[in-house]
Design a protein around this nucleic acid. Structure first.
Lengths: 211, 211
DNA sequence: CGCAATCTGTGATTGCGTGCACAATGTAGC
DNA sequence: GCTACATTGTGCACGCAATCACAGATTGCG
C-alpha cells in the first residue's frame, strides 16, 4: 500500500502535529479537515489525502478525534520516543541552540557538545562539558545519537558533516550557510534565516513583480 | 515576458547567490550550470531555466561570469541595498538573534528591538535599547523598516504579527512555532528547527519506508 | 426509524514544475 | 577564417502533486 510517500507530505505532517497539539491544549476533542486547513492555510482535501497515505483516521460526518490523530502522527513520524542529538560548534550560535527551550518539550535532547577551539573545550555550557571534535569518533558510540546539529562556520561545515556521517549519524540539522553533501541515507535539513529574508525582499522591493 | 514567476524559483535564487559568492571569494571568474548544479544538488537545466525567467546572463560555450551573475541576482532579489529590520521578543531566542553575525554581512540590520516584559524594556542589548511593544505604532514610522523578526512565545505571536502588519511591515521572519496569518501582500517565512527534526525522524526511525 | 445533513476517503482531473533534448551561439585551436 | 567543441536558452513532454467531486459512512433530529 504505502509505497513511496512524497517527501512534501512528510514535511507537512509536523505542521499538522503542531496544530493538533494546540487544539488538544485548548480542550478540543474533535476537528474536521476544513477547520484544520483553515488554521494552517492548507486545503481540506490536501489534509485528507495526506493522511490517507497512512490509514483512515477520521469518521465521516464528524471529523478527526484530536487525541487519536495526534497519537497516530507521533507514531508515523517516530516521535513517540526521545531522540538524542549531538551539537558540533559551541560558538555564539551553538550556545544559543544549547539554550533553546523548544527542543526538549518535543522530545529532542542535546546530549553532547563538541568544538575545535581549545579555549572552548572543557567549558561547561548548559550543564554539558564541551568535548573536542577530535574525540568525536571515540565518544559517539556511547551516546547513541543518530541526529546531529551543525553550528560551525561555513568553511568547516562540510568536513564536520563528513565526520558525523562517518560516525553513523543519520540526520543533520545544518545551521551553516552551505549546500551540504551527504550520502542518500543521511537526511539534511538546513536552517538559514538569510535565505528566507533574501527571497522575501524580492517581493517587497519597490516596483513589485509587475514591471 | 516575466509574468508570474513561480515562488519555488525565487526561493532558489538565494541559494545560487550564496554559491556564487563563495566561488567569487575563491577567485573563480567563470562557472557553468553543470558545476554550479553539482555543488548545489540541483540539475543544470533547472538553473538555466530559473535564470531564463529574468534574462540571458550566460555565454554559450563558456558559462556564466561569476561577478556579473552575482550582481544580476542581487539586483533581482533586491539585495543591492541595506534592509532595516525590527525585532519583537527579546528573550533568550531574541537575544541570540540580535547576536547572530550572519545578517549584517548580507545587508540585513536590526535597528530596533521590542518586548512586552517591563523588566526587559530599557535594557541595552547589543547596543540597542529595548523598547516597549506598546510604542510599536509610535516608533515604526521613524525606523523605515519593512521587515520584522518575531521571536515571541507562540501564544503571543499572532497578535504581534497583526500589530506589525498594522504598522506597515511587509515581510516577517517568524521564529514562533505557529502557522501565522497575514494579508496576501505580507510575506512570511517560518523558522522552526523542530519541524525539520520531526520530518527527519520519519526516515531514520527503524523499519524505514519499506515495510 | 427514516431522512437530511455532515464530512471522510479516494478515483479522476487539472495544473505546474522538472528534466530532456536540441537548435543557437559563442570559444578555442590551428 | 574555418573547424571542432562546449555550453547556453528554450520548446516540449513527462510526472507528480494539488484540487475536484462524489460515493460511502456516520450523526442527529423529528
Amino acid at each position: 500500500m504505502a509505497l513511496e510517500i512524497p517527501e512534501v507530505v512528510i514535511d507537512r505532517l509536523p505542521i499538522y502535529t503542531r496544530a493538533l497539539a494546540l487544539l488538544q491544549r485548548q480542550g478540543r476533542n474533535v476537528v474536521n479537515s476544513q477547520e484544520l486547513g483553515g488554521r494552517l492555510g492548507v486545503t481540506p482535501a490536501q489534509i485528507r489525502k495526506d493522511l490517507s497515505y497512512f490509514g483512515r483516521f477520521g469518521k465521516q460526518g464528524r471529523g478527526y478525534n484530536v487525541k487519536r490523530l495526534l497519537e497516530e502522527l507521533h507514531q508515523i513520524l517516530g516521535i513517540t520516543r526521545e531522540w538524542s542529538m549531538v551539537l558540533v560548534g559551541v560558538g555564539q550560535l551553538g550556545r544559543a541552540i544549547l539554550g533553546y527551550d523548544g527542543f526538549a518539550p518535543q522530545g529532542f535532547r542535546i546530549v553532547a557538545a563538541f568544538d575545535v577551539d581549545p579555549d572552548i573545550v572543557g567549558d561547561m555550557v548548559n550543564g554539558l562539558e564541551v568535548k573536542s571534535v577530535a574525540q568525536l569518533q571515540d565518544e559517539m558510540p556511547d551516546l547513541d545519537a543518530q541526529i546531529a546539529i551543525v553550528a560551525v562556520p561555513a568553511a568547516n561545515a562540510q568536513e564536520v558533516i563528513d565526520a558525523l556521517v562517518e560516525c553513523g549519524v543519520k540526520a543533520i540539522l545544518n545551521y551553516a550557510p552551505i549546500a551540504a553533501h551527504a550520502p542518500p541515507d543521511v537526511r539534511i535539513r538546513d536552517i538559514d534565516p538569510v535565505l528566507g529574508l533574501q527571497s522575501m525582499t524580492f517581493y517587497i522591493k519597490e516596483g513589485g513583480t509587475t514591471s
